[in-house]
């Protein structure tokens, strides 16, 4: 099956077949990452610009490694070193980047819709590495890849997503992806962090109580509480957050015994997740990180449209 998307702006635009293809492609790339020489010439001569207008360590690193393992030339620009801080518009920044003829721009931006904005204005492929509270497609895909590895199939899984849903692009992309692949989503979080109409985005049920949301779940995904971002009107204290919405050994027992625990990172230990759980037997958090590289290799490969043999 051919991949017909020039951009990856969000999971919203991907079909179940697209997702399947991305995950299958990622699986075949994953093998490269365990070789002695972790490099294939697939994207030799291609230029990738990782434009990160918002602080990020792991996603940027993951995209950068993915590009290098495919032999592409990748260059990073970040919010603090790019000209964005000098008051240049995103359009001008984009046109300047484009004038240097990259093949792919990977963009992380604080404003929802920025990748969409770029895609309308530049000629190369755009991959969304997280835009505002909108989407974070590569994260959802690596989450699905991890679930598939551990559970065999996504279809029929009960997936609990817990935390600040309102500000979470990870939650939105996962809701689209999981719904498309036939999983059911249960959401829980403080009342101030459940956005209006979230049930309409997919196969979603909202629970008031964390314990009801994770009862008999196959997957428990804890979202990061963005300590720096939460205004005082949203939460009384982290102490209370941990008490009612934190995952610990006790409440995890409500999930299926073989449930896996996920977290997109970076974690706030002792807030949304206790160290006993994050380091416990059910955690697959580092698998997520590992799969992140493979999924991003797959995305770069698929949007670049090269006909090369996957792995030599």
């Amino acid at each position: 099956m051919a991949f017909r998307h020039k951009h990856i702006l969000g999971i919203e635009h991907l079909s179940a077949e697209d997702i399947q293809l991305i995950l299958d492609t990622a699986e075949s790339f994953k093998e490269i990452n365990s070789r002695d020489i972790k490099k294939v010439p697939t994207l030799r001569g291609k230029t990738i610009i990782n434009a990160f207008f918002e602080a990020s360590t792991r996603t940027r690193l993951s995209f950068e490694i993915a590009g290098k393992r495919l032999s592409a030339d990748s260059v990073n620009i970040s919010g603090s070193t790019s000209s964005v801080v000098k008051g240049e518009t995103l359009e001008d920044t984009a046109k300047n980047i484009e004038a240097m003829a990259p093949d792919i721009i990977v963009i992380r931006h604080g404003h929802s819709g920025s990748p969409h904005y770029l895609a309308e204005r530049v000629g190369c492929s755009i991959i969304n590495a997280g835009d505002g509270a909108h989407e974070h497609p590569s994260q959802a895909l690596l989450d699905l890849m991890t679930m598939r590895e551990h559970k065999g199939s996504i279809k029929g899984l009960e997936v609990a997503i817990v935390g600040d849903i309102t500000h979470s692009r990870v939650a939105r992309s996962n809701i689209y992806a999981l719904t498309r692949m036939g999983a059911r989503i249960r959401l829980a979080g403080p009342g101030t962090m459940i956005p209006a109409g979230i049930e309409k985005m997919g196969d979603v049920t909202v629970f008031n109580d964390l314990r009801d949301a994770i009862k008999d779940a196959d997957v428990v995904m804890m979202l990061r509480i963005q300590l720096e971002r939460q205004s005082k009107t949203l939460l009384p204290s982290l102490r209370e957050y941990a008490r009612y919405f934190g995952l610990n050994q006790e409440n995890l027992k409500l999930a299926r015994p073989d449930a896996i625990v996920m977290h997109p990172g970076p974690m706030n230990r002792g807030v949304e997740i206790s160290s006993y759980v994050s380091d416990g037997e059910q955690n697959v958090i580092l698998d997520q990180v590992e799969n992140g590289v493979a999924v991003r290799m797959a995305l770069l490969y698929l949007v670049s449209g090269v006909d090369a043999i996957l792995a030599e």
Partner: peptide, 13 residues
């Protein structure tokens, strides 16, 4: 406007 569309687009309602 706050509602399903804002939620989908990740925009503040």
């Amino acid at each position: 406007n706050e509602g399903p569309v804002a939620t989908e687009l990740g925009l503040k309602g």
